[in-house]
Write a protein that binds this DNA or RNA. Structure first.
Lengths: 242, 242
DNA sequence: CGAATACTTGAGTGGGGTCAACGCAAGTGG
DNA sequence: CCACTTGCGTTGACCCCACTCAAGTATTCG
């Protein structure tokens, strides 16, 4: 799974792919809403999401929670722990999830032996940074409507890159309350804005299934430019649907 | 300047420090509000701020601008361009500024010869990411009052780490409009909240000079925890002033 | 089938936006 | 040296997006 991700980030040679595939990994299954990594923890291994969704978050006074990012299979949501200690946020599962833990030591060794892999790992953390920048712009400048539209565009595109979109439909296990925690909105308002998006025939969202009904109009409402995701291989050329 | 920064991030040996100091650099002076790097540009060199302030930004429809980060002397605000192309945002000067441009090639060569420096560079980009996370939490969860307090805490702490604070006072060249662009607030509201902060005797801010009058109370209002800045060497143990 | 969780809807409120002046200081040119 | 300009800071009036509180309705799960 990690090999697949890194291969998407930078072309991998046979030796390199093999080395990634042979990394020692401890597999562990987590229940929903369970911490994979705690805030302030000092890690000695990295998590690679095999199955299920996860999210990073920060807790503030008064029980408020800001979700910092969502993660889908293939992501390595605490890769920064290789060089940044301790954790400045928590990492938890959204759904039941399967996680592979790879020792830091093995990753450092890998980076030493294969400079191209070191680059791919670094680049992976830089893409996280690019996504953070997009979220800052979203939170600072967009209306609730634009925020939701933008997040839906981003997640759909990332799921597509991970091969998890069929047609224009994907699983979407994020509750409205969690969307609010990510977008700085109340669950009540998220609900109302989702209804607007549905009323405009931009999306359909029910029972953990999301469909983009009109990609072009949704992207326009979101002012969405996928360049920041730095996806090297766009899966298929997108026909202007809608 | 870069050697000083990297030295603060990871301990440098003599050879390493010398290698950094001998990097080829082209010095250039920029006027205020001038682009150092344009959005979408593909870079072949990195900028290192020697003197003056800069900021990263994204432009949105309707002339709205989100400032993504502020940068002070010693920062390398486009280091991510080493492995992420093209730029997904712009980089501009806030004040007149002196910038040293270092070719990517030289930095790649440096990273190849000195793994510790490769780590320090990577770590530098990871700290940028940590700061983005803090901003996301600020924009998503804090009131205007808390946002301003948090940003002032962060900048003061970073300036202190750069040796640019005397007493509790530092230069502060950011206009109220720019603060608004960074915090997702209007310049009018920034003005009102700054007056509140002054009325509470937390800060003094006039004529491009900022003083923290009560660090402890300001940090409390901001819910500020400096851990995310990952400053290895806190300058002096802070006496609980205020 | 009962309990918990998520979603939905309505009413009322407030934080922060917009618009519009005005003050003030630093240039700048005649 | 002074009239003019320009950019930033300040203040007031009004308004709306999104929050809170509260109740009620699906869904999901044990």
């Amino acid at each position: 799974m990690l090999a697949r991700r890194l291969g998407a980030i930078a072309p991998l040679g046979g030796d390199e792919r093999r080395a990634v595939e042979q990394l020692p990994a401890r597999i562990q299954v987590f229940e929903p809403q369970q911490d994979i990594v705690h805030d302030r923890e000092i890690l000695t291994r990295c998590a690679v999401l095999q199955e299920g969704w996860a999210f990073r978050y920060k807790l503030l006074d008064g029980g408020r929670r800001q979700i910092l990012s969502f993660h889908v299979p293939g992501d390595a949501p605490d890769l920064q722990s290789l060089h940044l200690r301790p954790m400045d946020h928590g990492l938890a599962t959204l759904t039941r999830a399967t996680v592979a833990f790879v020792p830091h030591e093995s990753l450092h060794d890998l980076a030493r032996r294969f400079p191209a892999l070191a680059t791919a790992l670094w680049r992976n953390t830089l893409i996280d940074g690019a996504i953070y920048r997009a979220w800052i712009a979203t939170l600072g400048q967009r209306s609730a409507y634009g925020r939701l539209a933008h997040l839906l565009c981003e997640l759909h595109r990332r799921l597509e890159a991970a091969g998890l979109v069929a047609g224009q439909t994907c699983t979407f296990p994020i509750t409205q309350g969690e969307l609010g925690n990510a977008l700085g909105l109340s669950n009540v308002h998220v609900n109302r804005v989702l209804q607007e998006l549905r009323a405009h025939d931009l999306i359909s969202l029910q029972g953990r299934k999301l469909s983009i009904l009109s990609w072009s109009r949704l992207a326009k409402a979101a002012e969405f430019d996928p360049a920041y995701l730095h996806l090297t291989a766009p899966p298929e050329p997108r026909i202007g649907a809608g």
